[in-house]
């Protein structure tokens, strides 16, 4: 959505601005529409994730001891490092938006690279976490087999790991999509498509990325920390 209306590079903001799609009257209208669209999209994302959070809370309510025991098997450190990484990436993304607000395309591209880098680190850490879980048979639902690997978790830990994989998996998919979008923004910035007066695509990318961060801010304590 963030890229709905960007076409060719341009420099000036008169009515024939090539960034302006035919059905809008002004750039202001176009930008406002794109941003409102993005916020509504974020609303749908929040509601979608809310279903998983609810599943988590209900699981806690049904089987409190099991959740507490099972969550001990998640690595606090891996989660913690990823939190710091993701927060940092949000910071660099915000700075990227700031750079283009000031018209600094070079710095924008730098910030995008840094953000992408953080995103990649996040994914790598996730990869190691996931492989450890796979190895120990801590898998969702009927694939759960940790007891065959010598881990005795009382109760129904297969549900916990089901929810764990659903939440972090869906979040991970969002991270991956975010990385792809940022890469694309990086390319477009290189083509000179953005300037201090036309950067709503960057802004929307940022909003999306911050949302991914927001969700992690809740995932992290709930899955890894809370007793």
């Amino acid at each position: 959505m963030s890229n709905e209306h960007a076409h060719a590079p341009a420099h000036d903001d008169d009515e024939h601005n090539p960034h302006l799609a035919h059905h809008f009257d002004t750039m202001g209208q176009q930008t406002a529409a794109a941003k409102l669209g993005m916020w509504l999209f974020l609303a749908t994302e929040i509601l979608m994730f809310s279903g998983l959070f609810l599943a988590y809370f209900i699981l806690r309510m049904f089987y409190p001891e099991m959740v507490l025991e099972a969550h001990e098997y998640l690595s606090k450190w891996a989660g913690g490092i990823n939190t710091v990484v993701l927060l940092t990436s949000s910071y660099t993304m915000a700075l990227g938006v700031r750079s283009i607000q000031l018209g600094d395309v070079k710095k924008l591209r730098l910030m995008l690279v840094l953000t992408i880098l953080c995103g990649c680190i996040f994914m790598v850490v996730k990869y190691f976490e996931y492989s450890a879980k796979f190895e120990h048979g801590m898998l969702p639902g009927k694939f759960y087999s940790a007891h065959l690997h010598g881990y005795e978790i009382d109760g129904l830990p297969h549900i916990f790991f089901g929810v764990y994989f659903m939440m972090t998996g869906l979040h991970g998919i969002h991270v991956a999509i975010g990385l792809a979008i940022m890469l694309w923004m990086f390319v477009r910035a290189g083509r000179g498509e953005f300037n201090a007066k036309n950067y709503v695509a960057i802004e929307n990318t940022g909003l999306y990325w911050h949302l991914v961060d927001l969700i992690w801010i809740f995932l992290f304590p709930l899955l890894y920390l809370v007793k």
């Binding site: 599943a55 699981l59 049904f62 089987y63 969702p140 639902g141 009927k142 694939f143 129904l156 297969h158 549900i159 089901g162 929810v163 659903m166």
Partner: peptide, 15 residues
Amino acid sequence: IERSLGIGIFDPAMG
């Protein structure tokens, strides 16, 4: 996911 992996959120047989 419940149907394919049997995570046990909705299915009483899985808890």
